[in-house]
Design a protein around this nucleic acid. Structure first.
Length: 430
RNA sequence: GCGAGCGUAGCCAAGUGGUUAAGGCAGAGGAUUGUGAUUCCUCCAUCCCGCGGGUUCGAAUCCCGUCGUUCGCCCCA
């Protein structure tokens, strides 16, 4: 063959699928705007250092999944593997805290991680994320969770599960880490190989292991929920209380440990029962230490990211492709008629109508067939006879009713034609 | 990075060593040089079965490599 293909882990989103993306984007944008979140757009690449400091050098994302390269000025740059670090960098750089109070931000766009591709996991993938900066209030934690759920529900998704945990503050985690290591060390030889190495490097992640023997061992491991400081406990209790007040169902999961170092206190994931191994649609939590870690003022923060490919996968399973039919399908035959049709199509569009012009030049029979299949409400016919009299045959496709109308009479919003057309297109039963 | 499966047209798909690679959907043209259903006819893989190499008198079919993809692990959204 020899033709060039999209590179591994990347893919084209073709027009039929794009309709799902547009639907997600418009529903999310609308909902976020109503909740006073403002969109932010940050660069696709940043200095490598930003992610190393922000995400944590010990994490897999930084350690082995980043697209890092030197530019021609010998700077080490990295294609963003997630959106939070860039948003926080912009928040600090532009002094957004100086605008006072709480900053609510959202973003969407491509992210890059060098991973083994799988359904719901590409090397270039897309996230929609939100961040609330400047509030330590448990209500902020619950607000972001409820917005995520609202977005998913508005898209018609069900079968979703909210898993909740608290990883406490830094010193809570320190004491828990010690307790966990103390508990696990006697079992060291029985742990799976990955978990054995994590015992010294990142013991909390052992709780996430899917190895059956390891899970058996961690079954009775101490829970972080017993190592929370009074303040952390109070925060977490309040979060749970507020979730209940909003009737948002959740389940506590002390094994839930997010992979990125910057999380504190609340950690959560929304999973779908309708996906395979990559079941997490939305993940997030509180990250009170990140802003100072990146050189900004002490600023509490909470947010999440939704994996859009996974979301689209779910939508495609449950809903038929939303169709996009034109209002008018315009067919024509003969030189004069074809020229008039091109002009008429343009003018009709200027009145706000959606018009598809048949360019085939084939027999009227074929063009009518295509008009029918296009799903248009009305078919306009322009042949030699109409061209001579500057008229057009108007055929209402649902009823086969046909009338001859002067071209000029189609173009006014007050015209009977326009009125009837918009009335039909607004009829939900059509 | 590890393990396993799969790769025939835009889509679905038969063929599993022997002359011209089934069929369906979609598409194009025509019967119907101006009216949408149905029907009928014709066309739609001719250095070719993802790509490269090997075995064989003969390969879509067997072997090796490679690329892509799927499932699981790892990780994450």
């Amino acid at each position: 063959m020899g033709a060039i293909q999209a590179t591994r882990g990347t893919r084209d989103i073709l027009p039929d699928e794009v309709r799902y993306w547009q639907r997600v984007e418009s529903i999310a944008r609308d909902l976020l705007q109503r909740a006073a979140y403002r969109e932010i757009r940050t660069p696709l690449f940043e200095q490598t250092d930003l992610f190393e400091r922000g995400i944590g050098e010990a994490t897999d994302v930084v350690g082995k999944e980043m697209y890092t390269f030197k530019d021609r000025g010998d700077r080490s740059l990295t294609l963003r593997p997630e959106g939070t670090a860039g948003a926080v960098r912009a928040y600090i750089e532009h002094n957004l805290q100086a605008q006072g109070g709480v900053q609510r931000l959202w973003y969407t766009g491509a992210m890059f991680r060098y991973e083994r591709p799988q359904a719901g996991r590409q090397r270039q993938f897309h996230q929609l994320g939100i961040e609330v900066l400047g509030s330590a209030d448990p209500r902020a934690d619950v607000e972001v969770m409820s917005i995520a759920i609202d977005i998913l529900h508005s898209l018609g998704l069900t079968n979703l599960y909210l898993d909740l945990n608290s990883v406490g503050n830094a010193s809570d985690r320190q004491s828990y880490r010690q307790a966990l290591v103390d508990y696990l060390t006697p079992y060291q030889a029985d742990l799976d190989p990955d978990s054995q190495t994590r015992l010294t490097r990142n013991p909390l992640r052992i709780l996430d292991s899917k190895d059956p023997r390891t899970q058996e061992i961690t079954q009775n491991a101490p829970s972080i929920l017993h190592h929370l400081s009074p303040a952390s406990q109070q925060h977490f209790d309040r979060v749970q209380q507020l979730l209940s007040d909003l009737s948002i169902p959740y389940q506590l999961n002390f094994r839930l440990v997010r992979g990125l170092d910057y999380y504190t206190h609340t950690a959560f994931e929304i999973q779908s029962a309708d996906l395979g191994a990559q079941a997490t649609v939305c993940g997030g939590g509180r990250y009170d230490g990140l802003v100072t870690e990146l050189g900004g003022p002490d600023t509490p923060a909470v947010g999440w990211a939704i994996g859009l490919e996974r979301l689209i996968l779910l939508l495609q399973k449950l809903q038929p492709v939303p169709t996009s039919a034109p209002d008018i399908y315009l067919i024509s035959r003969g030189d004069a008629a074809e020229a008039q049709a091109l002009l008429l199509a343009q003018r009709l569009r200027q009145t706000g109508l959606a018009v598809e012009l048949d360019l085939s030049g084939s027999a009227f029979g074929k063009q009518f067939k295509r008009a029918d299949r296009s799903g248009a409400i009305v078919c306009l016919v322009l042949g030699d006879a109409e061209a001579e009299t500057n008229t057009v045959q108007v055929k209402w496709l649902a009823t086969a009713e046909q009338e001859s109308i002067a071209q000029a009479d189609l173009l006014s919003p007050s015209a009977a034609f326009y009125q009837r057309l918009t009335q039909i297109s607004q009829d939900p039963n059509y």
